[in-house]
Design a protein around this nucleic acid. Structure first.
Lengths: 148, 148
DNA sequence: CTATATGCAAAAATTTTGCCTGGTA
DNA sequence: TACCAGGCAAAATTTTTGCATATAG
């Protein structure tokens, strides 16, 4: 249960569980969206007619990231977004459509061996990676084809 | 010559070659920095005591990206940066240090075959990819080791 | 000459911060 | 009840836009 993870992580840091923190965590768990910016989280919470301040959202997504429940991802629009980290789940990659901006997930981790190779060559200690593919989704390819 | 590429691309679009555009392109070619944000480009140009407005920098890096001379990259700090696209040059990947923020290049493209696989499975038409590794550079590993 | 680009400043958008009040442990 | 967190609003940043002027072609 993620709430419990949060609660115990907070205890370690002498921080407190609050309604807002739980709310924001739930927003990620229950959302259809895979990735949300602070602004999007804020709106999501408001939709449930719950009062919360934007500053709290900014502070909380950052906290959840430190604690390891969220992962920060940034696409080329420069907007900082967050996604749930599901521990044990297979790594996935993102396919981003340059035309409509849609992001889909591609579940396959092909980089496990590669990390070791890079560590040997560079002395870097790798803890994480992010792989994004940019191109045109099949719908946008079609609509472009139709125009011609 | 990149200036010539720019000039001819601009001609195609009925746009004009200007001192500012050439200046900004040169800033990338002559800079030691691999990646620069609009703000960094702006400062770079000022250092050469040349007057240019920030708005022009923002507009120009975007233009150079459309034209294919720059590529947009965004690390987890959310700052939009640009790097020169060297056509024909081998793709490289970024190793980002979580501690000092340093970015180093890792020249090796291991994803050529992978793109085809993904296109088949998803119907996406992939035009580009970005792979970033996050971790600790060797210097930061040492300084952490010394503290303990 | 004419249309495109620039500069400047204002506006907009995004994110951070300080400070007082409220609520958790 | 002590201290952490939240709300609110101001401030700081970052980016975009409108418009008058300059300039490339």
């Amino acid at each position: 249960m993620k709430q419990d993870i949060l609660r115990s992580e907070l205890r370690k840091r002498k921080q407190r569980m609050t309604a807002q923190r739980e709310l924001i965590l739930k927003a990620f768990m229950e959302s259809g969206e895979e990735h949300m910016s602070a602004e999007e989280v804020y709106r999501k919470v408001l939709e449930r007619r719950l009062r919360i301040s934007k500053a709290t959202v900014y502070r909380t997504v950052e906290l959840l990231t430190e604690v390891g429940l969220l992962r920060k991802i940034v696409f080329r629009d420069g907007v900082v977004r967050y996604e749930l980290v599901d521990k044990g789940e297979h790594h996935h990659h993102h396919l981003v459509c340059n035309s409509c901006g849609k992001v889909i997930e591609f579940p396959e981790d092909l980089l496990d061996g590669l990390e070791n190779l890079i560590e040997e060559k560079t002395g870097f200690k790798i803890t994480d990676h992010q792989l994004k593919f940019y191109g045109l989704c099949s719908e946008c390819q079609k609509s472009i084809a139709n125009k011609e």
